[in-house]
């Protein structure tokens, strides 16, 4: 996954010559961006995600139809000038529903991913740095949580607490944080024995200070890639949930729900199913491409952490 480094020796040589390249962390953002933009797939990924966000925000301006307006007399229409992607069984405009449909998925996914990654990062770092019994305990509990298949765990939580967005965010956080903990802990453990951390420990710095000053800046790349990758899974998971009828509640426009609603009429109006499928797939594809691009730009091995 890493950029091929054709020859180590010249690389050393370049380091010996100490190039006066762009200094300071601000430069890092720029280098990352540049290397992202140089890679075609990564750019495409970022663009896809950006387009989806824009559509979700601007949906009311893009279509004259309300996504929940029933029109029984124009049900199950094929694509036409009035309804570009046709209508569904209740006569709702498919395109409008697809344009609005990203809102729920994007919002819930973003919130859930952010919570899971934040929680996972804190716990993972703490476990890695403190080590000892705390680490053992954390890993034990995590193993147990990881053992319960995510969909099952979500269904259990949704069954007992109901299917509100807040519950889903909470449930996804619980389900995915352990995986983030694993990844972050591994990354932090890679940093912890390095000499600059040792120097800080010998200086007698407090754990929090070591975490913030020495460890976090050096695993920021791993955490960011983790975020992008986790986001794609969360989108998939939440749409699966909607598909099963446990996510967005019926009149709400949501891709997973739409596929579920329209798949029985697939032979009649294929676009009612295909349109949300395309929307969902392009969003996840965009997130995946961005995660790959970020990982490549930073040399993070994202594949190793799959699932």
């Amino acid at each position: 996954m890493n950029e091929p480094n054709p020859a180590n020796e010249p690389a050393n040589e370049a380091a010996e010559a100490a190039p006066a390249a762009v200094a300071a962390p601000a430069g890092m953002v720029r280098t990352t961006l540049r290397s992202l933009l140089r890679s075609g797939p990564a750019t495409a990924g970022l663009v896809l995600v950006a387009v989806h966000v824009l559509i979700a925000v601007l949906a009311p301006l893009l279509t004259p139809y309300a996504p929940t307006a029933n029109a029984p007399d124009s049900a199950l229409l094929g694509p036409s000038a009035a309804h570009w992607a046709g209508t569904d069984a209740l006569g709702r405009d498919v395109l409008a529903r697809v344009l609005y449909g990203g809102r729920y998925a994007l919002m819930v996914s973003f919130a859930a991913t952010a919570c899971a990654v934040a929680l996972g990062t804190v716990v993972g770092c703490a476990a890695a740095l403190k080590g000892g019994w705390l680490d053992d305990l954390v890993m034990r509990v995590l193993d147990a949580v990881l053992a319960i298949p995510p969909i099952l765990a979500l269904l259990v939580v949704v069954t007992v607490l109901g299917a509100g967005p807040a519950v889903i965010v909470l449930a996804v956080t619980i389900v995915y944080a352990p995986q983030v903990v694993r990844v972050v802990r591994a990354a932090a453990m890679g940093v912890a024995p390095l000499d600059y951390v040792t120097a800080a420990r010998a200086r007698g710095e407090r754990t929090l200070s070591i975490l913030v000053r020495e460890v976090l800046p050096n695993i920021a790349d791993v955490v960011s890639v983790e975020f992008a990758m986790r986001a794609s899974w969360v989108v998939l998971l939440i749409s699966s949930l909607s598909f099963l009828g446990f996510g967005a509640n019926p009149p709400t426009p949501d891709w997973g729900l739409m596929i579920s609603e329209n798949r029985t009429a697939m032979t009649v109006v294929p676009w009612a199913s295909l349109a949300p499928i395309i929307a969902l797939a392009t969003l996840v594809l965009g997130l995946n491409l961005s995660a790959d691009g970020l990982a490549k730009a930073w040399g993070v091995d994202r594949v190793k952490e799959a699932r």
Partner: peptide, 21 residues
């Protein structure tokens, strides 16, 4: 990458459409 970007229920739905129907 395409396989990763499509949820399994979509693959299933498409299969139903393409093969069974």
């Amino acid at each position: 990458l395409a396989g990763m970007s499509v949820p399994e229920f979509v693959v299933a739905t498409l299969l139903v459409m393409a093969l069974s129907i």
